[in-house]
């Protein structure tokens, strides 16, 4: 009986602590929104963070996108040629990237590269009392430190996702047209004819915006909430990647079902 009570206690504690953390993350989100004035009044603070989260992620985004595009070109060609429609390879690569892989893979890479860096940085700032020092200088750390990073993530993500899609298409072009020999005109003209700006490109950008908000808020919250110890920061960094990845994939399904339904 005691074992059963202990089990339910543990489950209950786990559920309530998760709800509690969700509430705290939501509170942080609203605090960021309220304290965001400075991020735009002193835009250089946000620009600096865009450089760290966006520009510094470019290498991993470009290299990954190129390989993903090449694999799509290769896989797509061998599937499509069975049905005699290998000229549609351009559409396949573009739609797969613009609608799904661009926003999703970019967000996953962003969580792994920039998200972990944000969590570790904020966690260490907390552990070394830098945030307390800022508070004691009558400077709101949410406005000065957290909000610029949040907006940087939100701004950088759609740009990175667009770059991912563009480079991915280039990768697909290299494999399909240059290596395999698919007709170049068919590759581009089919893509131009079948990729819709509103339903494909804008929806992809909306997805990446939502992922940008989710990834950045998770990374910031984990850092802000991390116990001020080496172990605490390390666990928070791991949680950033795990939570972000699950949230991105879950949100992707929800958004896709709404977009296709609409």
């Amino acid at each position: 009986m005691k074992i059963l009570i202990n089990f339910f206690e543990k489950v209950g504690y786990s559920i309530t602590s998760r709800i509690n953390r969700l509430g705290m993350a939501t509170r942080l989100f609203f605090l960021i929104i309220i304290s965001s004035g400075e991020s735009f009044r002193r835009f250089h603070l946000t620009m600096k963070e865009i450089y760290f989260t966006g520009v510094m992620s470019l290498v991993i985004i470009i290299v990954s996108a190129f390989f993903v595009g090449m694999v799509l070109g290769l896989q797509g060609y061998y599937t499509l040629q069975k049905y005699g429609s290998s000229e549609a390879i351009g559409v396949l690569v573009a739609l797969a990237l613009v609608r799904e892989l661009g926003p999703v893979v970019t967000a996953l890479l962003f969580a792994g590269r920039a998200g972990t860096a944000i969590t570790a940085e904020i966690g260490l700032m907390k552990a070394t009392e830098q945030l307390s020092a800022m508070e004691m200088m009558a400077v709101n750390p949410v406005g000065r430190i957290i909000a610029p990073r949040f907006w940087a993530g939100v701004i950088a993500m759609p740009i990175l996702a667009s770059i991912f899609s563009m480079v991915g298409i280039l990768g697909g072009y290299v494999v399909a047209v240059i290596v395999i020999g698919v007709d170049e005109g068919a590759f581009w003209s089919q893509m131009q004819a079948n990729v819709d700006f509103r339903y494909d490109i804008v929806n992809g950008v909306i997805k990446s915006l939502v992922f940008g908000v989710a990834c950045t808020i998770i990374a910031l919250f984990e850092g802000f909430d991390a116990p001020p110890t080496a172990e605490g920061v390390s666990r928070a960094t791991t949680r950033t990647v795990v939570t972000s990845s699950l949230v991105i994939l879950g949100l992707d399904f929800i958004l896709t079902s709404f977009m296709l339904g609409g």
Partner: peptide, 19 residues
């Protein structure tokens, strides 16, 4: 509180300099 803190300066144990 922020107004009061502007009258204060604090030296933290390990400096807490912005790295």
């Amino acid at each position: 509180i922020y107004k009061l803190r502007r009258k204060m300066g604090m030296l933290f144990q390990h400096g807490a300099l912005f790295t």
